[in-house]
Measured scan of single mutants.
Amino acid sequence: TGEEYIAVGDFTAQQVGDLTFKKGEILLAIEKKPDGWWIAKDAKGNEGLVPRTYLEPYS
């Protein structure tokens, strides 16, 4: 299990392996990579890379 984050903006996948999401979606951070791209999972179970700058902790 990971930590929940809320998307603060829309993001469209730029390449294969990225995860597209919309502002307000809750994402589960699976792995926090030091380069600023995290592996996350959305509510539908889709998994991919997301930019850290689009996420804020969800409580």
Results as ranks from 00 to 15, higher is better:
Gly48Pro: 00
Lys23Arg: 11
Tyr54Met: 15
Phe21Val: 08
Ala43Asp: 08
Gln15Ile: 09
Glu3Trp: 13
Gly48Leu: 02
Pro34Ala: 14
Gly24Thr: 02
Gly48Val: 03
Ile30Arg: 04
Glu3Gly: 10
Leu49His: 09
Asp10His: 06
Ile6Pro: 00
Leu19Pro: 00
Glu3Ser: 11
Tyr5Asp: 00
Lys22Trp: 08
Ile30Phe: 06
Gly45Trp: 02
Ala7Val: 04
Glu3Met: 13
Glu56His: 10
Glu31Lys: 12
Gly17Met: 05
Gly36Leu: 05
Tyr5Trp: 11
Ala29Cys: 14
Ala13Cys: 07
Gly2Ala: 12
Ala40Phe: 08
Val16Ala: 13
Ala13Tyr: 03
Ala7Pro: 01
Thr20Ser: 15
Leu27Lys: 00
Lys41Asn: 03
Gln15Tyr: 10
Glu47Leu: 14
Phe21Gly: 00
Glu3Tyr: 11
Asn46Glu: 08
Glu3Phe: 11
Pro34Cys: 13
Lys41Ile: 12
Glu3Asn: 13
Asn46Met: 08
Ala29Val: 15
Val16Trp: 10
Gly2Ser: 11
Thr53Tyr: 11
Trp38His: 01
Phe21Glu: 00
Pro57His: 08
Ala40Asn: 00
Leu55Gln: 00
Val50Pro: 02
Trp38Gly: 01
Ile30Pro: 00
Glu47Phe: 14
Phe21Ser: 00
Phe11Pro: 01
Gln15Gly: 11
Glu4Arg: 15
Leu19Phe: 03
Lys32Phe: 07
Gly45Cys: 06
Ala43Glu: 09
Ala13Ile: 03
Glu31Gln: 12
Glu3Thr: 10
Lys23Pro: 02
Thr1Tyr: 13
Ile30Tyr: 05
Asp35Thr: 08
Glu3Asp: 12
Tyr58Gln: 06
Leu27Ile: 07
Gly24Arg: 03
Ile39Ala: 05
Lys22Pro: 02
Glu31Phe: 13
Thr20Met: 05
Lys44Pro: 03
Leu55Cys: 04
Ile6Gly: 01
Leu19Tyr: 01
Gly36Val: 03
Glu3His: 10
Tyr54Val: 08
Gly9Val: 13
Arg52Glu: 14
Thr12Ala: 09
Ala43His: 10
Pro34Thr: 11
Thr53Phe: 11
Lys41Val: 10
Thr12Ser: 09
Gly36Phe: 05
Lys23His: 06
Gln14Lys: 12
Tyr54Gln: 08
Tyr58His: 09
Arg52Pro: 12
Lys44Asp: 11
Ser59Ala: 12
Gly45Gln: 04
Lys22Thr: 08
Trp38Cys: 03
Leu19Thr: 01
Ala43Phe: 09
Asp10Pro: 05
Ala7Leu: 03
Asp18His: 15
Leu55His: 01
Ile30Gly: 02
Gly17Tyr: 06
Leu49Pro: 04
Tyr58Met: 09
Thr20Gly: 11
Tyr54Lys: 10
Pro34Arg: 09
Ile30Asp: 01
Tyr54Thr: 05
Arg52Val: 13
Glu56Gly: 05
Tyr5Lys: 00
Gln15Ser: 13
Glu3Arg: 12
Gly36Ile: 04
Asp18Arg: 14
Ala13Asn: 04
Ser59Pro: 11
Arg52Gly: 14
Glu25Gln: 13
Asn46Pro: 02
Leu19His: 01
Ala29Lys: 03
Asn46Gln: 10
Glu25Asn: 08
Gln14Asn: 10
Val8Asn: 10
Leu19Gln: 01
Leu55Val: 05
Gly45Met: 04
Gly48Tyr: 03
Lys41Ser: 07
Ala13Met: 06
Thr53Met: 13
Gln15Cys: 15
Gln15Asp: 09
Pro51Gly: 05
Gly2Arg: 13
Gly45Tyr: 02
Lys41Cys: 08
Gln15Asn: 14
Gly45Leu: 03
Asn46Asp: 08
Ile30Glu: 02
Leu19Val: 02
Asp35Arg: 03
Tyr54Leu: 15
Asp10Tyr: 05
Pro34Met: 11
Lys22Gly: 06
Glu47Met: 15
Ser59Phe: 13
Ala29Pro: 06
Glu3Gln: 13
Val16Ser: 11
Val50Lys: 00
Tyr58Ser: 07
Trp38Tyr: 06
Tyr5Ser: 00
Gly17Cys: 07
Asp35Pro: 02
Val50Arg: 01
Ile6Val: 10
Trp37His: 05
Asp35His: 07
Gln14Ala: 10
Asp18Ser: 12
Pro57Trp: 07
Lys23Ser: 07
Ile26Trp: 07
Gly2Asn: 11
Ala13Ser: 10
Phe21Gln: 00
Tyr58Ala: 08
Phe21Asn: 00
Val16Asp: 13
Thr1Phe: 14
Ile6His: 03
Asp10Arg: 03
Ala40Cys: 15
Lys41Glu: 04
Gly17Leu: 04
Gly24Ile: 01
Pro34Lys: 10
Gly24Phe: 05
Gly45Phe: 03
Ala7Glu: 00
Glu56Pro: 01
Val50Phe: 01
Phe21His: 00
Ala29Arg: 04
Ala13His: 03
Glu47Ile: 15
Gly45Thr: 01
Phe11Thr: 01
Gly48Glu: 01
Gly2Val: 13
Ala7Met: 02
Glu4Ser: 13
Lys32Trp: 06
Gly48Cys: 04
Tyr58Phe: 11
Pro57Val: 09
Leu28Val: 14
Ile30Thr: 05
Thr53Ala: 14
Leu27Glu: 01
Thr12Ile: 12
Thr20His: 05
Lys32Val: 07
Tyr58Pro: 04
Gly17Asp: 05
Thr12Pro: 05
Ala13Pro: 06
Tyr54Ile: 08
Ile39Tyr: 12
Asn46Thr: 08
Leu55Phe: 05
Lys23Val: 08
Pro51Glu: 07
Pro34Glu: 12
Pro51Phe: 12
Ala29Thr: 08
Phe11His: 06
Arg52His: 14
Ala40Pro: 01
Ala29Met: 12
Val8Ser: 07
Glu47Arg: 11
Ala13Gly: 12
Val16Lys: 13
Thr20Leu: 02
Leu55Asp: 02
Thr53Gln: 14
Glu47Asp: 06
Lys33Glu: 05
Lys33Pro: 07
Pro57Phe: 08
Ala29Asp: 00
Tyr54Ala: 09
Leu27Cys: 02
Asp35Lys: 04
Gln15Met: 10
Ser59Asn: 14
Gly45Ala: 03
Val50His: 01
Gly36Pro: 03
Glu47Gln: 14
Leu28Trp: 14
Gly9Phe: 15
Thr20Pro: 09
Gln14Arg: 15
Ala40Arg: 01
Tyr5Leu: 04
Asp35Gly: 14
Gly2Gln: 12
Ile39Cys: 09
Val50Ser: 01
Asp10Met: 04
Lys33Phe: 12
Gln14Tyr: 09
Lys33Val: 06
Ala40Ser: 03
Thr12Asp: 11
Ala7Thr: 10
Leu55Ala: 01
Val50Cys: 06
Pro51Ser: 07
Arg52Ile: 11
Trp37Tyr: 08
Ile26Leu: 08
Leu55Lys: 01
Gly45Lys: 03
Glu25Thr: 08
Ala29Glu: 02
Ile26Phe: 06
Trp37Met: 09
Tyr54Glu: 06
Ile26Cys: 07
Ala13Phe: 03
Leu49Asn: 10
Gly2Glu: 10
Lys32Cys: 07
Leu19Glu: 00
Gly36Ala: 04
Pro51Lys: 08
Asp42Ser: 06
Phe21Pro: 00
Pro57Glu: 08
Lys32Ile: 08
Thr12Cys: 12
Gln14Ile: 12
Ala7His: 01
Tyr54Gly: 04
Ser59Arg: 12
Thr12Leu: 10
Ile6Met: 08
Leu49Cys: 12
Lys44Trp: 15
Glu47Gly: 05
Val16Cys: 12
Leu28Arg: 10
Thr12His: 10
Glu3Leu: 11
Ile6Arg: 09
Ala7Asn: 01
Lys33Leu: 12
Ile26His: 06
Val8Gln: 07
Asn46Ile: 08
Gly2Leu: 14
Leu28Phe: 12
Ser59Gly: 11
Gly45Val: 00
Tyr58Cys: 09
Thr12Gly: 06
Asp18Met: 15
Glu4Pro: 14
Glu4His: 14
Thr53Asn: 13
Glu56Ala: 13
Leu28Asn: 07
Ala7Ser: 06
Thr1Arg: 14
Glu47Thr: 15
Asp18Cys: 15
Ala29Phe: 08
Tyr5Glu: 00
Lys32Arg: 09
Ile30Gln: 04
Ala43Arg: 12
Ile26Gly: 02
Ile39Pro: 00
Lys33Ile: 06
Phe11Trp: 14
Phe11Cys: 06
Trp38Thr: 02
Phe21Leu: 05
Pro57Ser: 07
Thr53Val: 13
Ile30His: 03
Gly45Ile: 00
Lys23Glu: 06
Ala13Glu: 04
Gly17Gln: 06
Ser59Lys: 12
Lys32Ser: 05
Glu47Tyr: 14
Pro51Ala: 06
Leu28Glu: 07
Lys33Arg: 15
Leu19Asp: 00
Ala43Cys: 11
Gly24Asn: 06
Val16Gly: 09
Phe11Ser: 02
